[in-house]
């Protein structure tokens, strides 16, 4: 009876079955908890380990500088854009690339090279946003005041989309960016 006061000496040794089950539970837990650190050592895809505090205004400056120096330009020297968002192709040797999220757009549109390793910085000017790369389905949280740095190496070429998957007020469902990987 789970409703009745137990016998005075309820602290009884476990039964054979209970002991066996407890061992099974502990083994499962042990397996699970070795899995995560082991994947850090041997796995190829792990969550980012670098992040910094950054003021939104300060981060905006970094992004502006990055766009100015690396933007794709037409013959007149004007920045090429898609739907009004500048297209940026990091110059040879540029490792640190920047993505800015704000209500309700991602800037810039990044054009990356397959097989090259980049450090992708992500931060927000206003609210929390989500970085959800589709159709690869890799997701990260973008938090204002923090610069989260992803070490990425594109393995497939093509066009990918970044959709915001953290609610950021009324225009949330229109917030979408693009990422292009060339051969």
């Amino acid at each position: 009876m789970s409703l009745a006061t137990p016998d005075k000496n309820w602290w009884q040794p476990l039964d054979k079955d209970e002991k066996m089950w407890l061992k099974v539970c502990l083994l499962v837990a042990l397996g699970l908890f070795l899995m995560m650190p082991l994947f850090h050592l041997y796995g190829k895809q792990n969550p980012p380990t670098r992040s910094y505090r950054v003021e939104p205004a300060q981060y905006k400056e970094l992004v502006d500088k990055f766009i100015e120096e690396n933007a794709v330009r037409d013959e007149d020297g004007d920045i090429v854009d898609m739907e009004g968002i500048p297209v940026v192709e990091p110059k040879e040797g540029v490792k640190d690339i920047y993505l800015l999220s704000q209500k309700w757009m991602f800037t810039p549109i990044l054009k990356l090279k397959k097989g090259v390793e980049y450090q992708l910085h992500m931060s927000s000017l206003d609210l929390n946003h989500g970085f959800s790369l589709q159709p690869k389905n890799i997701n990260f949280q973008i938090v204002p005041g923090y610069d989260q740095v992803l070490k990425i190496t594109p393995r497939d070429s093509g066009e990918f989309y970044i959709i915001c998957n953290e609610y950021c007020e009324i225009g949330h469902h229109t917030m979408i960016g693009k990422l292009i990987v060339t051969e």
Binding site: L32, M36, N46, G130, N137, N139, F140, Q141
Partner: peptide, 11 residues
């Protein structure tokens, strides 16, 4: 799990 969480976060 951290690694699986990258695939499911906010989906």
């Amino acid at each position: 799990t951290e690694q699986i969480n990258m695939m499911i976060h906010n989906t």
